[in-house]
């Protein structure tokens, strides 16, 4: 892996059909790796794939669990929500004036009081943060694969994502 920037082109490409892009070709056109090197690279890439898949899976499972608990509490605390032919309409909860947490301080208060809706919002926030965490793992994995251009690409994406939360005033 020492010569990642070798300018040799991939042996799979016939030279006539693909003129070399001078000064640009690099690891993409990975120089012919020895079988051990190729196997090592393959193994690294596989590890990265499994790590990213695992992060997504954990985010999904945790958020579903938190959301379910919150939903359960919402119904447990409000008996009127439950009956099938009850008088209480769901529209009271889906109108524009319905109160629910939409800032970190109100979310903190809602969770501290054990309100179901606060816990649901927490679960949704975990769901929203899962892709951000996935990008962060992407940065680490390209560092691990010793791939500077892709590391910069993923760092940029991570910076934009984090910036977007600050720009939103979160």
């Amino acid at each position: 892996m020492t010569d990642m920037h070798g300018a040799d082109r991939s042996p799979r490409q016939p030279p006539s059909a693909n003129p070399p892009a001078e000064g640009l070709a690099r690891s993409g056109q990975r120089r012919q790796l020895s079988p051990e090197e190729a196997a090592q690279m393959e193994e690294k890439i596989r590890k990265v794939e499994l790590a990213i898949s695992l992060v997504l899976r954990i985010g999904v499972v945790v958020s579903v669990a938190v959301i379910s608990v919150g939903l359960g509490l919402m119904f447990a605390h409000h008996g009127a929500y439950v009956p099938i032919r009850g008088q209480f309409s769901y529209r009271k909860l889906t109108s524009r004036s319905t109160p629910f947490p939409h800032s970190f301080s109100s979310l903190g208060h809602a969770i501290a009081r054990g309100e179901g809706r606060g816990i649901v919002v927490l679960g949704v926030l975990i769901l929203i943060l899962t892709p951000v965490l996935r990008v962060a793992v992407g940065v680490l994995s390209f560092v691990y694969e010793k791939d500077p251009p892709m590391t910069i690409v993923t760092l940029y994406v991570l910076a934009v994502l984090i910036g977007s939360f600050f720009l939103a005033g979160v």
């Binding site: 959301i67 379910s68 919150g70 939903l71 919402m74 769901y90 909860l93 889906t94 319905t98 629910f100 939409h102 800032s103 179901g116 809706r117 606060g118 649901v120 919002v121 679960g123 949704v124 926030l125 929203i128 943060l129 892709p131 951000v132 934009v160 994502l161 977007s164 939360f165 720009l167 939103a168 005033g169 979160v170």
Partner: peptide, 19 residues
Amino acid sequence: AASAGVYFIRGQIDPIIAA
């Protein structure tokens, strides 16, 4: 996710619908 922060702050993520 890049625009979700805005939606959260604007109060567009209603728990009873989102759950």
